[in-house]
């Protein structure tokens, strides 16, 4: 067990190291920090002196170590555009993105479990077939088109929900802004959350359905039938419990996909989150902000993946802890 934990942590650190190297080489190659600091009138000799002073002529490794040391202390440079520490700018947008992810997760969980289970239990039923058909369509519609469609129908034609922005936010114990706490914020949250959920929901319905079907074929379920247990108990206590384990782990690993889709959703709805900020930073060539985004998202991503993997290793005794899964 300990060997598995150490191995998994080592892998997480290795991936984080690669991400930091990539981020650093971006910072190294993208734009000239001197241009941001001094004007045209400074002579070449003075520039060289300044370069030496800033350590820009040092070998790659020295520069990288300096970058990594600062990064570990939470210093990822200053955004050119906002004139504030990049990490602070990114983290100030974190609550908006989390609102969105939380809203979408809520929708995904409350719909995928009942629908997936229903489709597994009654595969020949017309309702189950409709759900499966709709899920194929759902997979085929790109996120941004769902968003545009929703905006066109519910914001422009019907005028039920606002088309962009985050609206008013409430403060949670003075620590955290959230759109969940005001009516206006909730209204703004509805369409983006549905959009973000729309792409993951079909995947989860299909996953739960196929996992559940597999579990229903297994021997312990047959034994439960033979014992004469009530169908409801077999379905919802015995089978569902073992269906959800792989579903939760697969769900945790989907976070990379979630990050990409938040970028798309935030762009369409002008939602002031991290993804939208990242694309703005790219358009402004705001290097420190780009790097900070990569590091923060990379860290969140690796953290979630590692935790999910470890939980899976702890909960599921059949996982081979050493070597390949």
């Amino acid at each position: 067990m300990l060997a598995f934990l150490i191995k998994r942590l080592a892998q997480a650190i290795a991936v984080m190291f690669v991400i930091s190297i990539i981020s650093f080489s971006i910072q190294d190659n993208l734009g000239d920090p001197l241009r941001e600091l001094v004007g045209q009138s400074v002579s070449e000799a003075e520039r060289q002196a300044l370069r030496d002073e800033l350590g820009l002529n040092d070998p790659f490794i020295t520069q990288y170590l300096r970058f990594a040391g600062k990064a570990l202390q939470g210093d990822l440079g200053t955004s050119y555009f906002f004139k504030k520490p990049a990490l602070e700018v990114i983290l100030s947008k974190l609550s908006a993105t989390l609102d969105l992810v939380f809203g979408a997760t809520l929708i995904i969980i409350s719909f995928s479990v009942p629908f997936g289970v229903y489709c597994a239990l009654k595969p020949q039923n017309w309702f189950a077939k409709t759900i499966m058909g709709l899920s194929t369509i759902g997979i085929s519609v790109p996120v941004f088109l769902t968003a545009i469609g929703l905006i066109y129908i519910f914001a422009i034609e019907l005028g039920w929900a606002p088309a962009f922005g985050r609206g008013e936010t409430g403060s949670f114990l003075g620590l955290w802004d959230s759109a969940f706490l005001t009516k206006d914020g909730l209204a703004h949250l509805v369409l983006p959350s549905i959009t973000l959920a729309s792409i993951m929901l079909p995947l989860f319905i299909r996953l739960i359905r196929s996992e559940m079907q597999e579990v229903l074929q297994s021997e312990y379920v047959r034994f439960a039938w033979a014992k004469g247990l009530f169908p409801n108990r077999i379905h919802y206590v015995h089978a569902l419990k073992n269906t959800m384990l792989p579903v939760i782990t697969v769900g945790g690993v989907q976070i990379g996909t979630m990050v990409a889709y938040t970028i798309l959703t935030e762009t369409v709805f002008q939602w002031p989150g991290m993804g939208f900020l990242f694309l703005e930073a790219v358009n402004r060539v705001d290097t420190p902000l780009i790097v900070a985004y990569l590091i923060v998202v990379g860290a969140i991503f690796i953290f979630v993946n590692t935790v999910v993997d470890i939980i899976y290793g702890l909960v599921n005794p059949t996982v081979k802890l050493i070597g390949n899964k």
């Binding site: 690993v253 996909t257 990409a260 790219v282 780009i290 993946n305 390949n324």
Partner: peptide, 26 residues
């Protein structure tokens, strides 16, 4: 196969967005 696992856990779209964005910016 370990490489494949790592590559798959980063979703394609995420890798593509970041790679192309950085390429375009540079």
């Amino acid at each position: 196969m370990r490489m494949a696992d790592v590559q798959l856990s980063f979703s394609t779209l995420m890798v593509a967005i970041i790679f192309l964005a950085v390429f375009q910016a540079s």
